[in-house]
């Protein structure tokens, strides 16, 4: 797992099986997924999935099982779990802010097409506290922890604001259309921000 993409590891840690699996491995030597599954009473595929995620996150070492290739055995690297966030990696804030401005412009245009000046104006008011949305976007990106977070929060807020008037399904479509428009020529930024699924 790339150091700047800790979402999967966080989700795994937060789930009901995450910490029990790591605790199970504490003090044990090389262990197979089937051993974890048997010890904790979970399905082997569940154990395998979590072990792979924790390995990618750097929590576990793994090696091919000598007798059961290509099966892997796992053990903890250290009893201390450390998850690192690299807030500055991969995407520059100006690129993200540029994408965000293109998205906001497309969204307001699309809102105007769908619901006229009133919807577009209401949306600008809700999302950006007024018509000067470019300045409001700059503020969002300046004060957000990182560009990725700022963009994801913007999309979330846009879906909520549109959804209040159009309902979640139509709002989801509108946001996706605007993001598709904004993504043209900015695929690298879209990928760096992890927005591929929002556009597809």
């Amino acid at each position: 797992m790339a150091p700047g993409d800790p979402k999967k590891a966080l989700e795994a840690l937060a789930s009901e099986h995450g910490l029990p699996i790591l605790r199970f491995l504490q003090g044990r030597d090389w262990t197979l997924a089937s051993g974890v599954a048997e010890g904790l009473g979970v399905h082997t595929s569940t154990a395998s999935k979590y072990l792979a995620i924790f390995h990618d996150a750097g929590f576990l070492e793994r090696r091919p099982h000598p007798a059961k290739r290509p099966t892997f055995a796992f053990r903890l690297r250290s009893p201390l779990i450390r998850l690192e966030f690299d807030l500055g990696e991969r995407v520059e804030s100006p690129d993200a802010a540029d994408l965000a401005k293109a998205f906001a412009g497309s969204l307001l245009d699309a809102a105007h097409k769908v619901g006229g000046a009133r919807l577009a104006s209401n949306l600008a008011g809700t999302l950006f506290e007024g018509p000067d949305w470019r300045r409001a976007l700059d503020r969002r990106f300046r004060f957000a922890p990182d560009a990725r977070t700022a963009m994801h929060i913007l999309l979330q807020d846009a879906r909520k604001a549109c959804g209040d008037v159009l309902g979640p399904a139509a709002a989801g479509r509108l946001v996706r259309i605007a993001l598709e428009d904004a993504s043209e020529g900015r695929q690298d930024v879209v990928e760096a921000l992890g927005l591929q699924e929002d556009v597809a």
Partner: peptide
């Protein structure tokens, strides 16, 4: 429309744009 008494919604714009 300005007073909110009439709402014209072009849902086709959402429909056509969705792939």
């Amino acid at each position: 429309e300005a007073t909110g008494k009439f709402v014209l919604v072009d849902l086709g714009a959402v429909r056509a744009g969705s792939s």
